[in-house]
Amino acid sequence: MGTKHLTNDDRQRIRTLYFEGNKTKAEIHDIAVFSIDQIKTAIKAPSSNVAKRSGRARVLSREQEKELVSFVTSSKEGRRASFLQLSVILFQSLFGKPPISETNRQKRLARALEHKDWTPEQWARVLWTDDTWITGGHHRKQYVTRRLGEEWDPTCIIERYQRKHGWMFWGCFSGLGKGPGLFWEKDWGSITAETYRSHTIPIIHGWIQFCQQQLADQLVLMQDGAPAHSASDTILDLQERGIQIIQWPPYSPDLNPIEMCWN
């Protein structure tokens, strides 16, 4: 709303809230969704002094603008679409479905409620793990269209997809410090339950044992829901090694602090 042109009615509304409603500028900002600078200008200049705005007439009505905002904020496809793509999508009615289903949202909520009373000491005992692909060449940032306060909205979250070319690294850390890392050799092939159990789990097991022996602290493993991680053989292997797993909801890379390290 920072570039929105204020009409005489807009300015009069701001002045009424300020002088007669005894609202502060911050309160008016919350109520009317105008920027603080716009509010200051409206308070200083009476509405009768507002010059008529020059330039091209409005193309979209207020209702059409609301429909546009509703579409952009309803899915990740809408958030990431360029202006040209939005015009094509809107006028051809090609609406997409958000990949995060209501079921997955409920799982994320259940996890939050389950751990809302955890202490810093409990979180410090979580061994956060993840892997990432490093690719050569230029990398293009992915932008999303969002409003203030929407950074954690499911439609604003950018999912990561495994790349076919490059180098794969696995790493971990906890509140006790940085853990070991692993470079995935290409002759190991793709990450399957078998290769994950052969190369990664022994490192996890060794590090958890080390922390327990040297630091007298038992770590809890966090791993995402990749097929190799959630396979029955993998779960059985972890159980036999006495490794406790923290349950993880799908489509939730934003909840894993190690994601910030890869960036």
Rank of each mutant, 00 (worst) to 15 (best):
G2K: 09
G2L: 09
H5I: 14
T7W: 08
T16A: 09
G21D: 06
K23M: 15
K25M: 14
H29Q: 12
H29I: 06
H29P: 02
V33L: 08
A42G: 06
A42E: 04
I43S: 02
V50C: 04
V50T: 15
V50A: 04
R56H: 12
E67T: 13
V69G: 00
S74K: 03
S74R: 01
S75E: 05
G78A: 05
R79Q: 05
A81C: 12
F83S: 11
F83W: 11
F83Q: 04
L84A: 13
Q85H: 11
F95C: 05
F95A: 03
P99W: 10
E102H: 10
K116I: 15
P120Y: 09
Q122M: 13
R125L: 14
D130H: 08
W133L: 02
T135V: 13
K141T: 15
Q142W: 10
Y143H: 08
V144S: 02
T145H: 09
L148S: 10
E150G: 04
E151V: 14
P154R: 00
C156W: 04
C156G: 03
Y161H: 12
Q162R: 13
K164F: 12
G166P: 07
G166A: 06
W167N: 05
W167G: 01
G175T: 06
W184A: 03
S190I: 13
I191K: 00
T192I: 09
T192H: 04
T195L: 03
I203Q: 03
I204V: 14
I204S: 00
I204L: 11
I208L: 01
C211S: 04
Q212P: 00
Q212W: 01
A216R: 01
Q218I: 00
M222E: 07
M222V: 08
Q223D: 15
Q223V: 10
G225F: 08
A228T: 09
H229V: 10
D233V: 14
S252N: 05
N263K: 08
